[in-house]
Simulated assay, not measured.
Amino acid sequence: MNRRAERLAPVVDMALKAEREAARQLGQAQNQLLQVQRKMAELERFRGDYQQQWIERGQHGVSGQWLMNYQRFLSQLETAVEQQGRSLTWHQDVVDKARASWQEKYARLEGLRKLVERYRQEAQLLADKQEQKQLDEFAQRLKPSAY
């Protein structure tokens, strides 16, 4: 490895650690979002079941007390769904930001890797040219003189 590439090794290591940490944070944010999505689905399913109960009970007649309890609970359920919706939006935003951060760190890491590879290729090309020059000089010395 040439000196320029060697000097970049600690920078590449730091970029790799940053990219891995960003990937870990993205995974964690995605898991939290998935949990919030599941809870939202449960609330919506429960609301649908509860509304179906209203339809079934309503066909047979309900008391005023039952109707008031139903409306109060449905209102609380709607509040919970709205809160969960806000939580879902917030968690989606966190995932989006974490993804952008990871993409930025990944792009930096890949850029550094390409730079190191270019430095290696340049060093190899220079070494190949120097070797060819030495071989040419050696071949010139081995030629018999034309006198």
Rank of each mutant, 00 (worst) to 15 (best):
Q30D: 01
L16K: 08
S87R: 13
G58H: 01
K114G: 04
G48P: 02
R113I: 02
M40P: 03
R72L: 10
E110Y: 03
Q92L: 03
L115M: 01
N2G: 11
W66R: 10
A22Q: 01
M40N: 04
A100L: 02
Y70V: 11
Q83G: 07
S75Q: 14
E117A: 11
R118S: 11
Q121F: 10
W90L: 12
E6R: 09
R57W: 13
E78S: 12
H60R: 13
M68L: 15
L67V: 15
D128H: 11
V95F: 04
S101Y: 01
K143A: 04
K114Y: 00
Q103L: 02
P10W: 01
K114N: 04
Q92C: 06
N69V: 07
L77Q: 09
G85W: 07
R7P: 00
G85S: 12
G58R: 00
A127R: 14
Q84T: 10
I55F: 00
L126A: 15
K17H: 12
A29C: 01
Q103P: 02
Q59Y: 00
Q140E: 13
G111F: 03
W54G: 09
A9P: 06
W66A: 11
L109N: 03
L142N: 11
E56Q: 03
Q71P: 09
R47H: 09
R24M: 09
R4K: 12
A5R: 01
G61N: 02
E78R: 03
Q84L: 07
V36A: 11
A123T: 04
R57F: 02
W102C: 03
G27C: 02
S87P: 02
L26M: 05
R20I: 12
Q76E: 13
R38C: 06
V81H: 05
Y119M: 04
A29F: 00
L88W: 13
L115E: 10
L67H: 15
A100I: 00
R7C: 08
H60V: 14
R108C: 01
K39G: 13
Q65R: 15
A139M: 06
G61L: 00
L109C: 00
P144N: 14
D13M: 07
L67P: 11
E42V: 01
Q83P: 00
N69C: 10
P144M: 14
Q134E: 06
Q76K: 14
R118A: 14
G27R: 03
F46K: 02
S63K: 09
R7N: 09
E122P: 08
R45S: 06
Q130P: 13
L8P: 08
A127P: 07
